[in-house]
Amino acid sequence: MSDRIIGPGDSPPQKYRVEAEPDPAALVAPTMREMSEPTDGIAPTPVWLLLFFFVLAGWSGYYIARNAGGFRADIYNEHYIAGAAPSLEKPAPADPLVLGRQTFNVCMQCHQDTGKGIPGTYPPLEGSPVVLGDPATPVRILLHGLQGDITIEGATYNGQMPSWDRFSDEQIAAVLTYVRQAWTNSAHPVDPALVAAIRKQTGERAQPWTWPELVIASKTPPPSATEPAEPKPAKP
């Protein structure tokens, strides 16, 4: 007999030599050696477990009552409490360097977090005379964008700087302040009032600047540019 159990209707295995002596393997074939089908014990559910479940259920009820926003479709803040007056206090003004650093998250898509740009594609901000010079020029670039050739430190770039006029005066001033003081840069901060003044002056402009236009514009100072008299180089 081979090691295979012959079940009812099973054709005898033909691939194998039939051995002469009874094969002990037959007794231990998988189907024969197994235990009986599983049965259930009747241990009772522990009391501590039930208590634990009641605590969880209680917590769930509390959590739903507190955080479901009255099941309204227009309540997204889970701490919303019906009837409570909306908080009127304005958030404290952000530190310009922190605000600038955060706003720079957008700029670093091209100019990189190192401020070095991409050689041949996006100009560097670190050590760039445009960034470190008269702040009115970078403010103009941010407000309306820049297109056409521009030469920074001997390399020519021909990209398209988009307009960022959707940023507030504070944000533009902050990000320029950050850029002017980050890495090895150290130039004095930019005043939001300067941004506001230039925004007012060039409000109708629809086109991005070109570099020659900016050179001309830089010779006519903005009407109410209030720059700090004393340059304050500071490192972040």
Partner: peptide, 17 residues
């Protein structure tokens, strides 16, 4: 809306059972 998320969280916590 907050309630949909809250129900998902409560279901998850009740999975402790």
């Amino acid at each position: 809306p907050a309630w949909i998320i809250t129900l998902g969280i409560v279901g998850s916590i009740m999975m402790f059972v």
